[in-house]
Nucleic acid binder design. Structure first.
Length: 678
RNA sequence: GGCGAGGUAGCUCAGUUGGUUAGAGCGUCGGAUUCAUAACCCGGAGGUCACGGGUUCAACUCCCGUCCUCGCUACCA
């Protein structure tokens, strides 16, 4: 890894094709990767920048089913939206592929076969639910039944949406297939697992050879590697009909696990782009492999995927994984299901021609070292007082003055004074300082260093006051304007990775090309006599009412998404079913936290005829001190269950609103403990 | 509860081989200016560096403890 770098493989996390891309994705992954790729291209480095949609997995299957369409329709729709919106915001992928295409299917299958041949995969047979009517095995999500825990009737096979418990399908009481409604049968099925424990040391020394990785990345990896349970084997296959068929004889109806095939998508995309030359970008050690991802993907890219590559053999492992944290929106977590998001394709509609504004704001506020907040007010401020007032304004001043005094033709400088020399020295030094930041993945710092060129320009003009000198010092004025023109030219070059649209526009005004990075460490970009045109302001102000409209839109969309989110009414039951429940009035006599659990409270509840111990998961909603004396409704005949070492003998009834907030179901104070509720 | 990351000016952040009055951008206040989209330029105010101990001649920086935020994980109505 210390060898000289001959080429770069830059990947951006594959967006999952079950929804559009929002500003969080952009800030966390696509913008930084694009800035990096554009910068390295300008450096003249050989590189590929690959991405594509991730189109497999049970979630897409589910969504298709919910909408009553084929999975293919879902992924086609979102692939197009994602591809177009990323292109329109200027993300300069060399290829934007998709995991549903043939090259990828073949590549993933070959990869799997090779691992199989190497003996890296462990075959295990387990009992899984099977739908006899639909004739297929059921993914966890495809099974519904009664939660063993809270007895919610529509718990899914992986999790109960009502009480949040993680489940395995076999725990469900009276399970039903969501495909046909039939009762599923347990049937033996075979899957292929990737054991990781034996790789633990190898992975650890790999991670430890990258101590320079960002603390969040390095820390999280070591946290996993040093966890007491060790690295668990993960199943690399699923019983599903949407995905890449497992390329083995005895694997009818089985597909590769989506997390297995997705990262191979980077490789397939490279093949698609380069043909046989893909090998250079993935197997040679003089290649630098950089994965841009969000923090949710760290473990996968730093541990699982490298493990897959190690087991397959012959691959070069990631050199850098500059993962970002999360971006919040107006103080709240971005949420697709609550529709709390600024969607990229909608931004592009609402802010036509202002692609660079979003790029600027999201780069300036990118969550590089900790979660960060995007607000529309901040968006407006940064646009108006940074892009418009500093950058756009400086460029415009130069263009206007040049036009006014010299008809747009750059004058020749006479003798350079110290201030001129100093300014030009800074101009020539800009690439070096910006490069320093970019090579360390400090994009916000790089952006700010780029902006200081504009600040330098504004100060230079203010100090030199050409508008005063034009009257009686024509030679001095010419020199000043010559210098100002060079600053502008350098700006147009240094802007390019960050603000490609504005850079192109400015370069055109200046009659320049997008120069190589190495050509930019200079003092003269534009010779005297070359023309500077002006095609109008680079940026325009964002008015208050635009911001208000966006904020209103956000609230309205969130409200609409939240409106009809009532739980569906459960299946009808008979009166006898109801009478099985023994509900009683009780009073909490004492409450204390259960140790080593932060959601559980150990309650003693007086039921009149006896006092019960009940463990309740309400510790995040109530403090123990406020509870004694509270009248509650209790399920008195629930089978006892041990929770965190404490035997719980019953359950307290709670009401929950759509935000997950809990309250006790009220019982009048006057009702004696032990009274029956029916 | 365990593990990881973070807690520095109104806002967004930089600052660790410990060392003079803790920095930047934006905002704010005052001044100056008019080439420029009331933009630009200069200056000021503004910080118990989450809190409490400890090590040291010296701590934002090292050690111990506590609190808060985020993530993973356990546990859960």
């Amino acid at each position: 890894m210390s060898t000289d770098i001959s080429r770069y493989t830059i990947t951006a996390a594959l967006p999952y094709a079950n929804g559009p891309v929002h500003i969080g994705h952009l800030a966390g992954c696509y913008l930084p990767s694009d800035i990096y790729a554009r910068y390295q291209r300008k450096q003249g480095r050989e590189l590929i920048f690959v991405c594509g949609t991730d189109e497999h997995g049970a979630a897409i299957n589910m969504k298709a089913q919910a909408e009553g369409v084929q999975p293919k329709e879902i992924v086609d729709k979102y692939h197009a939206i994602i591809r177009d919106s990323l292109k329109d915001i200027g993300i300069s992928f060399d290829i934007f592929s998709r995991t549903s295409n043939e090259t990828h299917h073949k590549t993933a299958q070959e990869f799997f076969k090779e691992m199989y041949k190497n003996g890296s995969l462990e075959e295990k047979t387990t009992a899984q639910y099977y739908d006899p009517q639909a004739g297929q095995f059921l993914a966890d999500r495809f099974i519904m039944g009664e939660c063993p825990n809270c007895h919610f009737a529509e718990a899914y096979g992986d999790q109960c949406e009502n009480c949040g418990t993680s489940l395995s399908p076999t725990e469900l009481i009276s399970p039903k297939s969501r495909l046909s409604g039939a009762a599923p049968e347990l049937k033996e099925t075979k899957h292929w697992f990737l054991p990781l424990d034996h790789l633990s040391d190898k992975i650890k020394s790999y991670i430890q050879s990258h101590k320079d990785w960002k603390p969040n990345v390095y820390g999280q990896c070591m946290s996993w590697l040093e966890s007491k349970d060790g690295l668990q084997a993960r199943s690399m296959t699923r019983d599903l009909d949407w995905g890449i068929p497992v390329p083995l004889d005895d694997a009818e109806g089985k597909v590769l696990y989506v997390w297995f095939d997705a990262p191979i998508g980077y490789i397939s995309a490279t093949k698609e782009l380069l043909g046989d030359a893909w090998v250079d970008y993935w197997k040679k050690d003089d290649t630098k492999l950089v994965h841009f991802i969000g923090k949710d993907n760290i473990v996968f890219h730093c541990i699982t995927f490298p493990a897959m590559l190690m087991e397959h053999g012959g691959f070069h492992l990631a050199d850098e994984v500059p993962a970002n944290e999360f971006l919040n929106l107006e103080g709240k977590k971005i949420s697709t299901s609550r529709n709390w998001a600024v969607w990229l394709h909608e931004y592009l509609e609402d802010f036509k021609g202002q692609e660079d504004v979003l790029r600027y704001v999201l780069t300036a506020t990118a969550p590089e070292s900790k979660d960060n907040d995007f607000t529309w007010l901040d968006f407006q401020t940064r646009n108006n007082s940074e892009l418009v007032a500093i950058l756009g304004n400086f460029v415009n001043r130069v263009q206007v003055l040049m036009q006014k005094y010299y008809d747009g033709a750059i004058p020749a400088a006479s003798k350079l004074e110290t201030v001129d020399e100093e300014a030009l020295t800074e101009v020539a030094a800009a690439p070096t300082t910006i490069e320093e930041s970019l090579e360390k993945y400090r994009f916000r710092e790089a952006l700010s260093r780029m902006m200081s060129l504009a600040r330098l320009g504004n100060k230079y003009l203010a100090d030199q006051e050409p508008w005063k000198r034009i009257k009686d010092q024509p030679q001095r004025t010419a020199t000043i304007m010559y210098v100002a023109a060079q600053i502008t030219a350098q700006l147009s070059q240094m802007m390019e990775p960050f603000l490609p649209f504005s850079a192109a526009k400015l370069q055109e005004d200046l009659g320049m090309e997008n120069w190589a990075w190495s050509e930019c460490s200079r003092k003269e970009f534009l010779a005297p006599g070359s023309k500077i045109a002006s095609s109008g302001h680079l940026f325009s102000k964002v008015e208050d009412k635009i911001i208000e409209a966006q904020k209103d839109k956000l609230e309205a969309m969130a409200k609409a998404a939240q409106g009809p989110s009532y739980e569906p009414v459960k299946d009808e039951i008979q009166f006898e079913d109801f009478t099985k429940l023994d509900l009683r009035v009780g009073t909490i006599v004492s409450a204390q936290k259960v140790k080593k659990a932060n959601k559980l409270l150990h309650l003693e509840v007086d039921l009149g005829f006896e006092t019960r111990t009940i463990v309740s998961g309400i510790a995040e909603h109530f403090s123990p001190e406020e509870l004694p004396g509270t009248k509650v409704s209790v399920v008195a005949n629930l089978a006892p269950r041990k929770l965190r070492g404490v035997m719980s003998q019953g359950m307290i009834l709670m009401a929950e609103d759509s935000d997950g907030k809990l309250t006790f179901t009220s019982v009048p104070e006057s009702m004696p403990n032990g009274s029956i509720i029916r």
